[in-house]
Nucleic acid binder design. Structure first.
Lengths: 222, 222
DNA sequence: CCCTCGATGATTGTATACAATCTTAGTCTT
DNA sequence: AAGACTAAGATTGTATACAATCATCGAGGG
C-alpha cells in the first residue's frame, strides 16, 4: 500500500494535513534538510513535496531562501473568501440545473441525518465540521464542473480550513445552518437555479462579513 | 540578466510560451531527457520546470509515466469557460466598487486608443488580441482582489489563450466589442456594480455559448 | 489469428556530491 | 554606538549515478 504513490506524494500528504491542522504554524520554515531528518529519504523527494505544496499555495517559496508555511493577512483572507463565495454560489446554481434526481434524494437523506443528530444534541460539534463540509462538497460535485470542483476543493478548501473563523459559535447556529441547508435543497429540487444560488450566497456570506468586520476593526486600530 | 532567476524558471517560462503559442501541441510528451538536450543543464531543473507546468495545469503528469502537454476535451473547456465567465464578471463588479478614479480615466484613454485604431482600420487583428487582453486585464486588476487576479491571469488565462476559439471573425466584431467595452466602462464609472457585472457577463458569454454549441454538435454526431 | 506472458530498453524516482547563493556573526571603520 | 564590509556556515540550485517502474516488442500457447 505504500508503493503505488511516490515518496514525494506521501510527504506532501503528511505536510498538507499538518499544515491544515495547524501543527505547522504559518511562517514556519521548511528546510529540505529538516524534512529529510523527519521523514527519511533524500532531498530530492522533499524538494518535490515542497513544490507541490507551493502549487497549492500552502507554502511560499523564495528562490535561494527556502520555503515557509503560508501566512495570510486578513486582506488576503478576505480575497479568498470573496472568491469562494462567488464560486460556491455558482456551483449551487449549476447543481440545481444538473444534479440527478438520485443525487438530490441523497441530499435529503443527508439532511435527515443531520436533523436527527442535532435533535439528539450530540452532533453540534460534528455538524459544524464534517457534516457541513459533506453538504457543501456534494453540491460542488453536483455542479458537474470538474474544474470548479478542483478549484474549490483542491485550492481554496485547505486555506479556508486552515484559517477557519467560527462566525458565531452560539448554540443555535447548527439549527439555523440546517434550516438554510434545507431551503437550499428545496430550491435545487425545484430546479430553481437562481434561488439556489441566492440562498447559498447568503449562507456563506456570514463568514465573509465577519471577516470584513475584523478587517475594518484592524484598520481602525492602526 | 540570466542569473537572478533559476534555470528551472527559465525553462518553465520557455515551455509556457511554447505551449500557449501552440508550438508544443496538446498531447506532446515532455521527457526530461528531451528537455535536457533542448535546453541544456541536467535533469533536476527540467523536472522542476515540468512540475511548475503541472501546477498551472499546462501539462499532465502521470507517476512513473512522464508528462504530456494538456489536452482538453470540449467538456473540460466548457468547464473552464464557465468558471472564467463567473470570475471575470465578479471582477468587473468589484472593479466598479473599488477602482480609483485615475484607473477609470486610464480605461477611458485605452478605449479612445482602440477607437482610433479601429477607425484607421489597421488595428482589427490587434484589437482582438493585445488590446482586448489589456482591457480585461485592467478590470481584473481593478477588482483589487489579488487571489482573483492570480486565478484569472495565472491559471485560466493560459488555457483560454491556448484554446482560443474565435467566436465570430466577422469584420464588424471589433467594433461591437469596442461598444460593449464602452458600456462596461460607463457602468464602472457610474459605480453601478451590478450593471457592470451584467455587461461583462454578456460580453464574455458569446465565447461560452459558442463552445456549448460545438459541444452539443459533437454529442449529436456520436 | 489473437491473446497472454516475459524480457529488454527506456523513462521516471531517489540518492548523493558539488556549486552557487543567502544568512549570520564578527570585525572594522566612521 | 551604529553601520558597512567580510568571511564562515548553512541552505538552496544543479549535476551525476543508481534503483524502481513502465512501455515495447517478440515468443509461445490457446
Amino acid at each position: 500500500m505504500n508503493d503505488n504513490q511516490t515518496l514525494a506524494d506521501k510527504v506532501f500528504a503528511e505536510l498538507t494535513t499538518a499544515i491544515v491542522r495547524g501543527e505547522l504554524r504559518p511562517g514556519t520554515k521548511l528546510s529540505e534538510q529538516t524534512l529529510v531528518e523527519r521523514y527519511g529519504g533524500s532531498r530530492a523527494p522533499m524538494r518535490e513535496a515542497i513544490q507541490k505544496l507551493e502549487a497549492r499555495h500552502l507554502v511560499v517559496r523564495i528562490p535561494h531562501a527556502g520555503a515557509r508555511v503560508v501566512s495570510l493577512s486578513l486582506a488576503e483572507l478576505r480575497d479568498i473568501y470573496e472568491v469562494r463565495l462567488e464560486l460556491e454560489s455558482m456551483a449551487c446554481r449549476l447543481a440545481a440545473l444538473r444534479m440527478s434526481d438520485d443525487e438530490i434524494q441523497e441530499l435529503y437523506g443527508l439532511l435527515q441525518e443531520h436533523e436527527a443528530s442535532i435533535a439528539a444534541e450530540q452532533g453540534q460539534a460534528y455538524y459544524q465540521k464534517a457534516g457541513d463540509l459533506d453538504f457543501h462538497y456534494r453540491i460542488i460535485k453536483g455542479s458537474q464542473n470538474h474544474r470548479l470542483h478542483q478549484m474549490l476543493c483542491g485550492e481554496l478548501y485547505h486555506i479556508v480550513r486552515m484559517y477557519r473563523y467560527q462566525t458565531s459559535t452560539s448554540a443555535k447556529r447548527p439549527l439555523q445552518a440546517l434550516q438554510e441547508h434545507q431551503r437550499i435543497v428545496e430550491a435545487i429540487s425545484a430546479r430553481d437555479a437562481e434561488l439556489a444560488e441566492l440562498l447559498m450566497r447568503r449562507h456563506i456570506q456570514a463568514s465573509l462579513t465577519n471577516l470584513e468586520n475584523r478587517l475594518a476593526e484592524e484598520e481602525g486600530h492602526s
